[in-house]
């Protein structure tokens, strides 16, 4: 099976997003911060008449600090009917996947295992396939409250 994959860099690692999940890639304009929300919610921004929630993927994974460069572009994805703009290190390319996602013995590390569907081979090499819903739920300590509130 070969699907189109959007290849990105998140927290210094290569990650793949299903291309059919990604609606578009936009130049991120002004972001309005949203006080009193978890850190990984960078704010909201407008795409035409739509409001997008901007998610910083690095913080959503649970990494602290900002040691990585940030792509001025953001990937727009839709999860459960809501649209999000994902900020990440870099949006690289679109390639095709080779085969199904597979698991690796020993996992991908605590931060990554939570959001990973598995490892996927692509024509650009192996990368981590990201489960968007898990990514957007934010780091573990928050995810409990969020699902309860939603």
């Amino acid at each position: 099976m070969s699907d189109l994959m959007v290849m990105t860099q998140i927290a210094g690692r290569r990650c793949a997003l299903h291309a059919h999940d990604v609606q578009s890639v936009i130049e991120l304009g002004a972001v309005t911060p949203v006080p009193q929300t978890p850190d990984f919610i960078a704010g909201i921004t407008a795409l035409r008449s739509q409001a997008l929630t901007v998610i910083d993927c690095r913080l959503a994974l649970g990494f602290k600090g900002t040691d990585w460069s940030t792509d001025p572009r953001a990937a727009v994805v839709s999860v459960n009917g809501y649209s999000y703009a994902l900020t990440l290190d870099a949006i690289e390319d679109i390639t095709t996947s080779i085969g199904e996602p597979t698991q690796i013995t020993g996992g991908f590390g605590p931060e990554w295992s939570r959001v990973a569907t598995g490892m996927i081979e692509t024509s650009a090499g192996p990368s981590l396939l990201i489960d968007l819903a898990a990514l957007i739920a934010g780091p573990d300590e928050k995810s409990g409250d969020l699902s309860a509130a939603a």
Binding site: T32, V34, Q36, A46, A51, L146, A149, A150
Partner: peptide, 25 residues
């Protein structure tokens, strides 16, 4: 409407766009 993660903070009821296209809460 706002994304559930933002709604769950309990401070906001939605978002709206100003005339210049800037979103506010």
């Amino acid at each position: 409407p706002l994304a559930p993660a933002v709604m769950s903070s309990g401070f906001y009821a939605g978002s709206t766009l100003l005339d210049d296209g800037q979103p506010i809460l």
